[in-house]
């Protein structure tokens, strides 16, 4: 992979030069404790020291509410213009969130390809950014603390400069468009980067053990732990909304006021919601909260592994931060693991 150096004093100029490659979306500080990905009009808004944003960048690729198509009594069903052909740049995406997007890619490809999702994906370039983990990050356990593809450029902080990995031809175009801002990388900087990466490891305070977890999940299917968590869970669905890999959606038809035309839309859903598995006639396949909580953990750490070979969790810590009942995925998995050894 090609690597160049971007001195920090050139960053602002570089971000400005990127605007000709598309609309920039980057983290901003909303208040003292909250960061968000937001549309950037002025590069001074960008806050690259953020820990985790409230919502992951999936909100751009899989919007909370999205249109599938239009319909009318006369014309039937017709495609809508989505505006996804506009180019955009997600700037400052952490490694875990890049892994999160790659997990969404797995789900929306396969035998039935969601072309709407992939059109958006193709038109969105990703510029990654290194980070320092806090006490809720467990990406190291999930193997998502580093990323080797799924971005165009990746910026790693080496104090006075960023070491910039160029992963795609588009990334190369971006660098070449403001070539004078970049410098060659010397041996010294590479060493510095390696040192920084090692230092990052020291910041981790949270780990989970993934080894044989799917098997343990099977063994602990009847564990009382699920009922205990079910008692605590409020079924609010916050963990799903903030999760970079949760993709479940509900579908609804929205009629216009004339009653003749409308749109079919998707809306984020959560497997924790009471009506998630409710079907016409009143049968609810998961009416118990404990069954829904268990299903969520099973899907992420057992089912997804069976289906795609890896868990659908990237260790970003958002669900830990957002849970009003203080349910902590790390504690749950540790508990389940200890249940298996009692």
């Amino acid at each position: 992979m090609q690597i160049v150096k971007l001195p920090k004093q050139n960053l602002d100029k570089f971000i400005k030069s990127l605007s000709k490659f598309g609309q920039i979306y980057a983290p901003i500080k909303k208040d003292a404790n909250t960061s968000l990905f937001s549309k950037i009009e002025d590069s001074s808004q960008i806050d690259l020291g953020y820990n985790r944003t409230l919502l992951p960048p999936k909100k751009y690729l899989l919007p909370p509410i999205d249109s599938m198509f239009r319909f009318s009594a006369e014309a039937g069903y017709e495609e809508v213009e989505h505006g996804v052909d506009e180019k955009s740049i997600l700037f400052g995406v952490h490694s875990c969130d890049i892994h999160g997007l790659r997990i969404l890619d797995l789900v929306f490809s396969g035998r039935y390809v969601d072309n709407h999702y992939f059109t958006g994906r193709k038109n969105t370039s990703i510029i990654g950014l290194s980070c320092i983990p806090d006490d809720m990050c467990f990406c190291r356990s999930m193997g998502t603390d580093f990323v080797e593809n799924g971005f165009d450029l990746f910026l790693s902080d080496i104090d006075q400069s960023y070491l910039v990995r160029i992963a795609t031809s588009l990334g190369d175009d971006m660098v070449r468009a403001s070539q004078s801002l970049f410098k060659e990388v010397g041996k010294e900087e590479i060493e510095k980067h390696k040192k920084k990466s090692n230092e990052m490891q020291k910041h981790f305070k949270t780990d989970i053990e993934l080894y044989n977890l799917p098997e343990i999940m099977d063994l602990e299917y009847e564990s009382k732990t699920w009922e205990e968590i079910g008692e605590k869970c409020l079924s609010c669905g916050s963990c799903s909304m903030v999760c970079p890999t949760c993709y479940c959606y509900d579908v609804f038809d929205e009629l216009s006021l004339d009653g003749k035309t409308g749109e079919r839309k998707t809306r984020w859903d959560s497997c924790l919601f009471e009506d998630y598995a409710l079907v016409a006639g009143g049968t609810n396949f998961r009416s118990e909260r404990s069954a829904r909580v268990k299903n969520r953990y099973f899907h992420k750490h057992r089912g997804f592994v069976a289906q795609y070979g890896k868990p659908s969790c990237v260790g970003c810590g958002r669900c830990i931060q957002s849970c009003p009942a203080k349910i902590n995925v790390v504690e749950v998995i540790t508990k389940i693991r200890s249940d298996a050894y009692v």
């Binding site: 396969g110 039935y112 479940c248 509900d250 579908v251 859903d269 998630y276 089912g303």
Partner: peptide, 15 residues
């Protein structure tokens, strides 16, 4: 079975 194409999650059982 809401989406029918293995995306929306609702009909998931186990894996």
């Amino acid at each position: 079975m809401k989406c029918g194409v293995g995306k929306c999650g609702h009909c998931m059982i186990g894996y």
